[in-house]
Design a protein around this nucleic acid. Structure first.
Length: 739
DNA sequence: AGCACGCCGACT
DNA sequence: GTCGGCGTGCTC
């Protein structure tokens, strides 16, 4: 104002580049109101067309090359939060460049709840509206469970109720709409008390102490380092990296622990609380939006000091991250397969590098990638021996299903040897476990009359019969249907035959073999919530269960002291399919499952049913020789120049119009950079799931030597091919799943 | 990612 | 004659 009166030259209105959480090709410029003090990283609200959006100031506006002044619209609001630190923005840009995603698409993950920046709002909790139920209320089983949960206890969040009852949050809202439940604002949002690094330190073995001191020293000193913490289950990896977390806390910095499946880690949270006095901040995708927002802000403000979460926790706006731990670093769950396709473990290493902080990769069965990095010296390595001396692994026996006397009877799946072992185990008052990584009753249902196979209408996949829920399910898209009475093709009634086993079918066989055994089924279908999981675990520990039957959710680290026998119903499952990492993954999974048998004083044994006992995976498991398996696997990859000895990228072309997809894939194939001798191009070929969720899919694969960055090659390649908007082209750098 | 604009089929 | 399908393009 005074400037005008004095005739002074008024500075042109300041202009900033704002990155919006949208897949735009570049940030947009906005005009800064005179009284607004913005810095790079400031969170702002800006207009975009008719909408108001949150964004992040990415730098100064571009007065020369950018849009003309008169088109600029003003920043509406400066959000009252500490700005996103420089390293956070550089990380987002790095991930965008690496994964070939727009920066805005990566930013979208970082402000992952769309309303992350909105002012805090109370959570909505639900409680019983009264004791009586209205007439005509349909009391479905899910509704019944919700009401039971609320019959005793305080009002609860819809997401928590849904998780415990094993249904969707819509059921809770439906009950509220029906007037059965009332909503109340829940004022007690979790506060994030500071974990105390000295609350309850655990006694450590000599080897643990050395490892812990090493990692704690790195965390205290800061600076980039990557360390593989390699130790079998029961070697005390968690206690060791807890000391690194403690050191980061003492240094006044935040720590992040990435776990593959936060939902299954109630035990982990208990151990953390025991060590540090309070629970850490949790971050995962099925948190209620208000809780996500609350947690996000607590991280941004630096109030949350230790965050444990699934892969998306990597993108939280840490103002002062001082340590990253990736536990179970070999887990495929770290690979995000939709939207921005990335591997959280690899991105975490990049984040540590950018932030100049240490990262710890922990595993009992490290990935080949990580092992090779440790061997070449890129990563430091700490080997943690078992606390129980050398013999931590149980006795592993292979059952050769090709031999007549070892094969199970027709339409049954447990061999005589395994049956006998189960029987002995239970007679001895010990517990057994049967592992089959296949949900449902049977993976394939066909008509005896005409041979028709029940297939998903949206995917190239058979429908899996689930007898417990009396439904057919597609495990790829979630399609469900009631089992038909008659064959849809030949209309014969009652002509269906179940082919192959799922865990439900194994449970049926067990019920006829051991009618008196107390059996628990552990699959993602039966363990819908953390409560269900905890209940089964308690029952097993209390000895109220004789036999556990389940899929990989059962394989995760639970300590069952009475469990001495593990039977793997089909050890070969997962080896077929031509997946690059099939053998590696099968080894990791079976190793983990085998580790469930025999803890503490009781020796355990493992029986693996297989059709290929000579396979390196089986041989290594039987001989307790991880290194020989890795050597064979590593040599094969080296010869094929496959990762980690070469680089791989997949191009996935998909769309609802098969011809358009084929045409686009063919066009990409024609323009492939075939002139370069160091590159190999495969495809286009139908993706293994040629139709997924109603979309046709074709794949191309680009392989190059280790030293060559594939992104610029892909960029040039894709830029010369015109693809109609109805066809989507995705790039998957370092593909894991070949689906 | 939204949302509008814009050209071709089945209805009040 | 309109209502509405979603293909293409824009948003600082």
């Amino acid at each position: 104002m005074t400037g005008d009166l004095l005739g002074a030259v008024t500075a042109p209105p300041a202009r900033v580049r704002v990155q919006l959480p949208l897949p735009l090709p570049e940030p947009y410029d906005y005009k800064v109101p005179g009284d607004m003090a913005l810095v790079p990283g400031s969170y702002v609200e800006v207009p975009l067309g008719p909408r108001r959006l949150f964004g992040v100031v990415w730098g100064d506006g571009d007065a020369q090359g950018g849009v003309e002044e008169r088109r600029l619209r003003p920043v509406l609001r400066h959000i009252d939060l500490p700005p996103m630190p420089d390293v956070g923005r550089r990380f987002i840009e790095w991930v965008a460049a690496y994964t070939m995603a727009p920066v805005g698409a990566v930013l979208r993950m970082a402000v992952s709840v769309s309303a992350a920046l909105e002012d805090p709002r109370a959570l909505t909790a639900y409680m019983r509206a009264g004791d009586d139920l209205p007439d005509g209320l349909r009391l479905t089983p899910a509704r019944r469970r919700i009401l039971d949960l609320l019959s005793d206890g305080p009002p609860r969040l819809a997401a928590d109720l849904a998780a415990e009852a094993g249904c969707g949050p819509a059921v809770v809202r439906g009950l509220a709409e029906a007037g059965v439940l009332a909503t109340v604002p829940m004022l007690a949002l979790p506060r994030f008390p500071r974990p105390d690094p000295d609350a309850n330190p655990k006694p450590l073995s000599g080897a643990q102490r050395l490892a812990a001191d090493d990692l704690a020293g790195k965390a205290a000193a800061g600076g980039y380092s990557a360390t593989l913490l390699d130790g079998v289950t029961g070697s005390g990896k968690t206690e060791v990296y807890f000391e690194a977390v403690a050191a980061a806390l003492r240094a006044g910095r935040q720590a992040l622990v990435l776990l593959p499946e936060i939902a299954l880690s109630a035990q982990w949270l208990d151990r953390f609380a025991d060590r540090f006095g309070v629970r850490p901040a949790e971050w995962h995708s099925d948190m209620a939006p208000p809780l996500r927002r609350h947690t996000w802000r607590a991280v941004a403000r630096g109030e949350a000091r230790v965050i444990v979460g699934a892969r998306s926790a990597l993108f939280l706006p840490y103002p002062d991250l001082g340590l990253i731990v990736v536990d179970e670093e070999h887990e495929a769950a770290f690979k995000q397969e939709d939207g921005v396709i990335y591997h959280a473990r690899d991105m975490a290493v990049a984040r540590a590098h950018l932030g100049r902080i240490p990262i710890v990769l922990a595993s009992a069965t490290p990935s080949l990638e990580t092992l090779v990095n440790a061997e070449t010296g890129r990563y430091a390595r700490i080997d943690l021996p078992s606390r129980h001396g050398g013999a931590s692994m149980p006795d592993v026996t292979l059952i050769d299903l090709r031999r007549k006397e070892q094969a199970p009877p027709a339409r049954q799946w447990l061999s005589p040897v395994l049956r006998e072992a189960l029987s002995q185990t239970m007679l001895a008052g010990e517990q057994g476990m049967l592992f089959l990584n296949r949900r449902g009753y049977a993976p394939l249902t066909l008509c005896r009359g005409c041979g028709h196979r029940l297939q998903c209408p949206n995917c190239t996949a058979w429908l899996v019969e689930h007898r417990l829920s009396r439904r057919l399910q597609c495990h790829h898209c979630g399609y469900q249907a009631r089992s038909p009475d008659a064959c849809p093709q030949c209309e014969a009634e009652g002509s269906f035959v179940a082919c192959g086993p799922g865990v439900e079918r194994v449970a049926e066989e067990v019920a006829t073999l051991f009618p008196d055994a107390r059996v628990a089924l552990m699959t993602s279908d039966t363990l819908a919530g953390p409560r269900a999981m905890r209940e089964v675990i308690e029952q097993v520990k209390a000895g109220a269960i004789d036999l556990l039957i389940g899929t990989q959710v059962m394989a995760k680290g639970h300590h069952f002291p009475l469990l001495t026998l593990v039977g793997v119903v089909d050890a070969d499952l997962g080896l077929s399919g031509g997946d690059l990492r099939a053998a590696e993954r099968t080894f990791q999974l079976l190793h983990q499952v085998a580790g469930r048998a025999g803890r503490e004083e009781r020796p355990g044994r493992v029986l693996l049913q297989t059709h290929m006992p000579e396979h390196p995976v089986m041989q290594s498991l039987a001989a307790h020789d991880r290194d020989s398996f890795l050597a064979i696997e590593s040599e094969q990859r080296r010869q094929l120049e496959m990762p980690p000895f070469g680089r791989l990228a997949a191009i996935i072309v998909s769309g609802e119009d098969e011809q358009a997809v084929d045409a686009a894939a063919a066009a990409l194939g024609r323009r492939a950079p075939r002139e370069r001798e160091d590159l190999t191009i495969l495809g286009p070929a139908p993706a293994p799931l040629a139709v997924l969720r109603g979309r046709f899919r074709r794949r191309l694969l680009l392989k190059g030597p280790k030293g060559v960055a594939l992104q610029p090659i892909l960029h040039d390649w894709l830029s010369v091919v015109d693809v109609p908007a109805s066809v989507r082209v995705q790039v998957d750098i370092d593909p894991y799943s070949f689906l």
